[in-house]
């Protein structure tokens, strides 16, 4: 049986019946060689946000998890570069963004916007107890978010949803703060017009902002 099936059979959770957590024993050697371990609870806490942003980047839940896994592996490999006490989340978002852009290249990154109907099939789960009216509005927002040019969408999500500081966003994306502000402003204006029913604004296929 290969590792994947074995993984599936291992019970998750720290309070299992086994005396010790088997995987951690075998990883001991790897950890001490390349530096002290990254703080476990912070790393685990970062996963949901990484997954969410990875979905925004890739437009696909499965590829998103692949991206997160690669990011986590890279973070461990480079852990000497992390300044103890500094923002782990921002550091990991930076790694993830670099992996995404460098491994796939810009072509694939923008290919994410291309699909048969012009709509993404990325299924964001809506809040369970939302009224019909709210759901309709949310679907609209998510659809229009998806239609934004890639650069604008990334900045908007980091600012509005991850609530990152503009300087952090600049670091994550590797651009000047001024560029963060201009993309953010364009993203919000574009989204505003699209939500207000301005179809001309929403369907502007030549307006690929690369500011």
């Amino acid at each position: 049986m290969n590792d994947a099936a074995l993984c599936g059979r291992v019970r998750s959770g720290a309070g299992g019946p086994h005396a010790a957590d088997p995987p951690q024993r075998t990883w001991g050697d790897v950890r001490t060689v390349a530096g002290p371990p990254l703080p476990e609870s912070d790393m685990l806490a970062a996963i949901p946000r990484l997954r969410r942003y990875a979905r925004v980047l890739t437009g696909d839940a499965t590829r998103a998890d692949d991206l997160v896994q690669e990011t986590l592996a890279r973070a461990w490999e480079k852990r000497r570069l992390w300044v103890v006490g500094s923002d782990l989340r921002a550091w990991m978002f930076t790694i993830m963004h670099n992996v995404f852009v460098n491994q796939l290249g810009l072509a694939a990154r923008d290919a994410r916007n291309v699909s048969i109907d012009g709509d993404s099939t990325l299924a964001w789960h809506l809040p369970v107890r939302a009224t019909q009216h709210v759901r309709v509005e949310l679907l609209e927002v998510l659809r229009e978010l998806d239609r934004l040019p890639t650069d604008q969408r990334e900045v908007l999500v980091l600012a509005a949803v991850e609530e990152m500081r503009y300087e952090e966003i600049a670091t994550v994306l590797g651009i000047p703060v001024g560029t963060v502000m201009s993309r953010l402003s364009r993203a919000r204006e574009r989204l505003r017009r699209a939500m207000a029913g301005g179809d001309d604004a929403a369907h502007a296929p030549l307006d690929v902002a690369r500011g």
């Binding site: 993984c7 995987p23 951690q24 990883w27 998890d65 809506l126």
Partner: peptide, 17 residues
């Protein structure tokens, strides 16, 4: 809602190194 999803085992392991 995306933050509330259960974490796949592989990602937990990866986060632990």
């Amino acid at each position: 809602a995306a933050l509330d999803e259960p974490l796949p085992r592989q990602l937990i392991d990866a986060a632990r190194g």
